[in-house]
Amino acid sequence: MKILLIEDEKDLAKSIQDYLKTNDFVCEWVTDFSLALEKIALYDYDCILLDLMLPRGNGFDILSHLKKLNKSDGVIIISAKQNLETRLEGFNLGADDYLVKPFHLSELLVRIQALIRRKKFDGNNIITFNEIQIDLLSKVVKVHGISIDVTKKEIDLLLFLIGNNKKVLSKEAIAEHLSGDMADMIDNHDFVYAHIKNIKKKLKNAESKSYIKTVYGLGYKWEDE
């Protein structure tokens, strides 16, 4: 999978690149507006991560440019701007998702995955991890072909964990992911523990392997040893 990262903050870009690299993504990175336009014209990307405030140019112009070229690359805007107008303008210009800085890299990763899924596998919305099958449309989770009773939140958590396969997820990252728009409201992340406990139990009852590992002090990790 090829990703183009358009971001002028070197340190942030480096971290994103590193994080995505270990997840079978090829992430190209440009800092410059004109370079970004050049890349877009030459190559096709599965996903473009776009910062709105760039030196010598506005991220929105890149969106319009993409439209002009009739490109169907998925675009996720990553910006410090969080007001509604900017968001709406981004979506109007063809962006697929909008992630407000600061964000967790794990969150970015699942957003990219979701976007690519939407773009590539129309109709086929089933995610499989060994014996676990998640149907995104009907919201059904099957273990060894038998569906188990899970809540919407638990599916969300499962997707987040599987999406970040082999990655350590901090309690904060999970909490923010699960709370969605309310993420900024919460300061008590204890509910993550309850959710993890529940999903662990349900998977165990369905005779799935225990993939969820507790990483001491930090959080959790989905891993098939």
Partner: peptide
């Protein structure tokens, strides 16, 4: 607003570090 980016970098670095 200006703090957003440093915080974002900080967050990303910690996310990378814990891996």
């Amino acid at each position: 607003h200006e703090l957003q980016t440093p915080i974002a970098i900080f967050k990303a670095k910690v996310d990378t570090l814990i891996q």
